[in-house]
Design a protein around this nucleic acid. Structure first.
Lengths: 224, 224
DNA sequence: ACTTGGCAAGAGCACTGCTCTCTTTTGTGG
DNA sequence: CCACAAAAGAGAGCAGTGCTCTTGCCAAGT
């Protein structure tokens, strides 16, 4: 093993350690986590952390990318049993379960963005992994003829949706892509509403209420 | 006019002025606004601000309540022409228009909550003004027989929804209340997705796409 | 005229992100 | 084996933050 790779490995381990501690701090400090506090927990000077992350925003970006990849990976491993509506519901629950287990990371990626923070290019690919899973189900359903296309869309929106369909679910009609995106948005909204306290003192049967909503979305998509 | 009320009036004006400047700062600093910067803009010492707000969180709470009331008032003045589906769509657009005009205040109330921040009791009443408008439309449609109840709900969720119905839309069947809440959650999610950048580089026809989603929700509710 | 209560200002504490300089460690080529 | 250079860490320091405490001021009420 060459020395360079030894250095690189140690560096990668240190980077992971910093991120792990930062993730812990995320639970208490949220998006405004303290780099110095993370450094203290690691027993190192705050200035040393800057050898690994150029700024606090850089550290946050790394956490954001990790979070996107984590929820994306979970979504990709969602069970694929039953019909397409079942698959969709299972996917919804998988994403929700991940969010409930990692609420602060969910808030990091789907909450209000930090002002002045511009998402780097590196985030777009991990960010779309979940919606790609929704699109995959819709594409499969389309190929199996197990979904109603419904009334078509016209105008400029149609053109945009065709581009999106090209990149995410080739062969799926644009109106289905639109409904998939709507379902995904509702999915994220329902989870955020639950996590951000909009249901407090109102709905305690969270899982049942969530499932009810997502069943509605499955119907809107048009699985049959 | 007594001296006490003069004092009170001046104090109220000062309070409003602080909130106005803080709202301006919200645009650049987001939820982590600087009390000192606000004080500087007002030409006063930072410690003087503490005569009006006990803490930065208190100031944020005041801004949150104002924002809830603002979007609630806008929703209440939404036009009531057309059938119930039209009213619902108009309400959705009213809320979205307000959010587009006041994105940072939207992020304040519907974005990720500040860690450790617990919403005081005073916020719940302003917070439900929007959903109450959705509920009002559904109640009117129910009384007019212009909505399909759909398949009923059972179990513990039913009991909760009945309590919610009691407080928000007396007479409306629980499953309609559930679908109203689902529509409201989708509404907030769609606006947040648009404002928080989830649609960047994907959908430019924002208004059309939003309307498409809300039309779907109107159908899910069951207006006829 | 004198007291009292509300308001403002300033200093100060502990904290933050970040930079700069200096020292230590460490892997490696001669 | 050892000197060297690159990488990593440590510490001080700057400007900023929330918040508290003390001090001074000024107008209103007795």
């Amino acid at each position: 093993m060459t020395a360079a790779s030894i250095r690189a490995r140690v560096r990668a381990e240190m980077t992971d350690e910093i991120k792990a501690v930062a993730r812990r701090h995320l639970a208490t400090d949220g998006a405004n986590l303290s780099l110095r506090a993370v450094a203290r927990d690691l027993g190192m000077a705050s200035s040393a952390v800057y050898r690994y992350f150029a700024s606090r925003d850089d550290l946050l970006t790394a956490l954001i990318i990790d979070a996107y990849n984590a929820v994306g990976a979970a979504a990709e491993e969602s069970p694929r049993t039953g019909d397409h509506a079942d698959r969709f519901l299972a996917l919804c629950h998988t994403v929700r379960d991940w969010a409930l287990a990692n609420p602060h990371e969910w808030a990091l990626i789907y909450g209000s963005p930090v002002p002045g923070y511009q998402a780097p290019r590196d985030t777009v690919e991990p960010a779309i992994r979940v919606i790609l899973q929704v699109a995959a189900i819709v594409r499969d359903a389309t190929l199996a003829g197990a979904v109603e296309a419904g009334e078509p869309i016209t105008g400029p929106l149609l053109a945009e949706l065709e581009v999106v369909a090209e990149h995410t679910a080739p062969g799926a009609p644009p109106q289905l892509v639109a409904r998939s995106m709507g379902a995904w948005i509702h999915l994220c909204g329902a989870i955020s509403a639950e996590l951000f306290g909009q249901l407090n003192n109102t709905i305690d049967q969270r899982r049942e209420f969530f499932e009810l909503q997502m069943r509605g979305e499955a119907a809107t998509i048009g699985f049959r």
